[in-house]
């Protein structure tokens, strides 16, 4: 397999994640979109690490992405739970109190 097939898989994941973020009304659904986007980027990093001179650096960066995605998911979930405690829903369209 060549590099571009892996990059295309990464592109599909990225686009699916973007669409997921844009269309889902459930807060956790939006979070899943973010995970897809990050994973699409990860596939690109690892593919470049394997096929080009990027080497180990690509794998290191993808490890950082995985770790930071875990941290991001924890914080986002805490926010979602907090929002649910106050509004009894996690519909992101209901989070409009700052509109004034």
């Amino acid at each position: 397999m060549d590099l571009s097939s892996y990059l295309l898989v990464g592109a599909v994941l990225f686009v699916a994640g973007v669409v997921c973020m844009a269309t889902k009304r459930n807060g956790i659904g939006v979070l899943m979109g973010v995970e897809l986007v990050l994973n699409g980027a990860n596939i690109n990093f690892v593919a470049f690490a394997n096929y080009t001179r990027l080497g180990l650096d690509g794998q290191v960066i993808s490890l950082f992405v995985i770790v930071l995605a875990a941290a991001e998911a924890a914080v986002a979930l805490a926010i979602a739970l907090s929002f649910y405690n106050n509004h009894l829903t996690i519909d992101v369209d209901q989070a409009n109190q700052l509109q004034g």
Partner: peptide
């Protein structure tokens, strides 16, 4: 996609993906 990482000769990243992402983050989700 962890399987893709294994195909790309990145065993450690693939395993970390399974452990941290799928086994940890997604259980949390």
């Amino acid at each position: 996609s962890a399987g893709l990482f294994f195909l790309l000769n990145a065993d450690f990243v693939g395993t970390a993906q399974l452990l941290v992402y799928v086994g940890g983050t997604l259980v949390l989700l």
